[in-house]
Design a protein around this nucleic acid. Structure first.
Length: 697
DNA sequence: GGCTATGCTTTTTTT
DNA sequence: AAGCATAGCC
């Protein structure tokens, strides 16, 4: 493609569509018009990041780049959707040729295209975090590790984190210090076997296998390098090691790599994201140009003052500060309430005040919480006052039992060896497969190193199975095979409907939920899946059960199409801080500003306070016009109420020193120790908790 | 095998 | 407070 003349900031580089650069400030313009070579855009909150990325893509195309040579990866489906939309608004039809997607979706596609090269099965299932947990439990069961030894979710977290750091099970076994690492290592190995024999990849594998593909297979690598001449990465501060490798493998040669992000908004370290990637970009890509976007168009000055005040307490970061393009405004409100109920009442009362004055609509408000358990009192209060609200990042649609059931059926139809799914629905509706038989089958499967499905198939050798359980398995199998679910050809939605009919899921829902309200709600979940299927058929060029399933699995976030944004349009938004990143609201309530909650005790114990501070920073910078930070004097936890300590971030936000004698969350025991003595201790000066005692069964 | 009652634990965040 | 696992009963 034509090389592009470097020109001083501000000068338009080409004839094509100069209007693209209009209305950009000098830094934004520089970012957009730097079209070749490595580029790091440090985009503070509210500085027009998305605009810069989308304009840059449009600009590339305007200058003659082939849209299909552009790869833009994002972190969430929502961001991908938004990017696609906005690029389309700028360049029209040709936007469709640009590859836009999340890392995971992109990798899934690459792996399907190259399954053979890697020796992966043609059809593999993708398992999400909760399937992953089931598989870890299976692994532990097979190894006869009791769940009280180490919590399965803790094992799963360690395995996943290990993968994200590109560690291996063997490294854990060899270099691990202590019995926990040994345990994780061996569970990990067994877990890997389970996934292999059930032809399953977890989320982390999608990335890792892609790295392996691109690293070890030169022709494939060259193909992708040749194809994608421009690589853009959004939210680069959230990049983990495998993602970084993928970027380097595809873009490291031509070096047309543009990464955009904000180290101050790195909040996924717990999941393997590595801030050092953005801190060291200029070292990884020598000669990289760095552009800082610091003019904030979102918030008033008092809000930005609070944000800057908080974040400057973090030591290791790219130096920068937000400047307000909006200027003055209301001071930040700091409020102390009696307890979480009072806090909810206060927040809703404030909202109603503004609503009465008609200076705001419900959609202008957001309540931001550190954890989901904090939602409850707010939901109650909002409902009591008749205010419409949406919960984002709560229990996902895909976590609902009926949805998981249906998805399990589908996965099983596509991949008979998918053990997690089989175990989930083998007896749904009840078909005589009880625990005893299941235990036998699983023991046999373990012993033979085969999947549970294969063990069922070889029931004769297994022994000790009740006849009805074998019959039950076969009944399910035959329904899956004969219902026409996997037949291509006829339309997907009616195949699904027919399948649900034949398998008797409707009656099962009716049976399980005698209460008509619950019944309706559950069945609505099933209908929603059919809805999704319809959408898939409509949108996808080549609709298929496989494709639909993949979409369902990778679509674990809340992004659920137009319907939800309509609802959000005029409803109060209740969400976690993590879910809030990238959004903005005129009026923000940052609630539960207490030591232990924000900063969260457990997070601090694991990774220190910096990431919690960034979380606070993210919360503060969501606010456009008003920001209220509140905390409760006492708060119920596990049912019991206890005194709280105001968050250090409250002091920082006001530029104050911590008061004399202030005691924050104390250093607690290493997070992966069982919290045997979780009793709140008085006078938090003691350093180490007594060695956790192990529960005996 | 299936269902209910009881007792115990507790995941922070999500692709 | 609530969900989940286990035990125990039909």
């Amino acid at each position: 493609m034509a090389s592009i003349r470097r020109s001083p900031a501000g000068a338009s580089t080409a004839v094509a569509n100069p209007a693209l650069l209009d209305g950009l400030n000098p830094s934004q313009r520089e970012a957009v018009s730097t079209t070749e070579g490595p580029l790091l855009v440090l985009a503070g909150a509210g500085t027009g990041k998305t605009r810069v990325i989308t304009t840059r893509i449009a600009h590339l195309i305007a200058l003659g780049a082939d849209p299909s040579a552009i790869l833009a990866v994002t972190f969430t489906n929502k961001a991908a959707g938004e990017m696609r939309e906005r690029v389309a608004a700028l360049v029209g039809e040709r936007a469709r040729e640009v590859t836009v997607g999340t890392f995971h979706a992109f990798c899934a596609r690459v792996l399907r295209e190259n399954a053979a090269v890697l020796g992966l099965p043609r059809r593999f299932t993708i398992c999400d975090a909760s399937d992953q947990l089931s598989a870890v439990k299976s692994a532990m069961r097979e190894l006869r590790v009791h769940e009280t030894t180490m919590h399965p979710s803790a094992v799963q977290a360690r395995i996943s984190l290990g993968k994200n750091r590109m560690d291996t099970a063997e490294a854990f076994l060899d270099n691990g210090t202590g019995s926990r690492d040994q345990l994780v290592g061996s569970v990990w190995q067994r877990y890997r076997e389970i996934l292999a024999r059930t032809r399953t990849l977890d989320f982390d594998d999608l990335l890792l296998e892609t790295v392996r593909l691109l690293r070890d297979h030169e022709p494939v690598r060259d193909r992708y390098r040749a194809r994608y001449r421009h690589v853009l990465v959004d939210e680069y501060q959230d990049t983990n090691h495998p993602q970084y490798e993928i970027v380097r493998l595809i873009g490291g040669e031509h070096r047309n790599v543009c990464v955009v992000g904000d180290d101050d908004q790195s909040i996924y370290g717990w999941r393997g994201a590595d801030v050092r990637k953005i801190l060291g970009f200029h070292r990884d890509f020598t000669g990289a140009k760095v552009v800082r976007l610091q003019t904030n168009y979102r918030s008033t000055r008092p809000i930005l003052d609070a944000a800057n005040n908080v974040i400057r307490h973090n030591a290791s970061r790219h130096d920068k500060a937000l400047e307000s393009a909006r200027g003055g405004g209301e001071p930040v409100h700091f409020v102390r309430l009696k307890d979480e109920t009072a806090e909810a009442a206060f927040v809703v009362e404030q909202m109603r005040k503004l609503l009465r004055l008609e200076t705001a609509r419900p959609g202008d408000f957001a309540i931001l919480c550190r954890t989901q358990v904090q939602f409850r009192p707010f939901e109650g209060e909002l409902r009591a006052n008749g205010l419409p609200y949406v919960v984002v990042g709560g229990m996902s649609f895909f976590d609902r039992k009926e949805v998981r059931d249906v998805v399990a059926f589908l996965k099983l139809a596509v991949n008979p060896r998918d053990e997690t799914s089989l175990l989930r629905v083998i007896n749904t509706p009840p078909r005589g497969v009880g625990k005893a038989s299941l235990d036998r089958v699983l023991a046999f499967a373990t012993e033979q190193g085969i999947s549970a499905a294969e063990a069922f198939e070889r029931a004769g050798e297994c022994g000790g199975l009740s006849p009805q359980s074998v019959a039950g398995y076969q009944a399910l199998r035959s329904i899956l095979e004969t219902s026409g679910l996997v037949d291509a050809g006829s339309d997907l939605v009616s195949r699904l409907e027919r399948f649900l009919e034949v398998v008797g899921y409707r009656e099962e829902v009716l049976r399980l939920y005698p209460d008509p309200v619950a019944r309706e709600a559950r069945w609505a979940g099933v209908l929603e899946i059919l809805n999704f299927a319809e959408n898939h058929v409509r949108r996808s060029p080549r609709p298929s059960l496989d494709g639909f399933l993949e979409e369902l699995t990778l679509q674990t976030d809340d992004g659920r199409g137009e319907e939800r944004s309509d609802r959000r349009a005029d409803a109060v938004t209740l969400m976690t801080l993590h879910a809030a990143k990238g959004l903005e609201f005129p009026h923000v309530f940052l609630v539960g500003m207490e030591e232990g909650l924000l900063p969260h005790a457990r997070a601090v114990a694991e990774n220190g306070v910096d990431e919690e501070r960034r979380l606070a920073y993210v919360g503060i910078t969501r606010a456009m016009a008003t920001l209220t930070m509140s905390f409760a004097f006492e708060r119920a936890k596990y049912g019991r109420s206890a005194r709280t300590v105001p968050s250090r971030f409250l002091y920082e936000a006001q530029g104050e020193a911590l008061p004399a004698g202030w005691v924050g969350i104390e250093q607690s025991a290493p997070a992966d120790e069982p919290a045997a003595d979780a009793k709140p201790r008085r006078g938090g000066r003691k350093k180490a908790a007594p060695r956790a005692r192990r529960k005996r069964a």
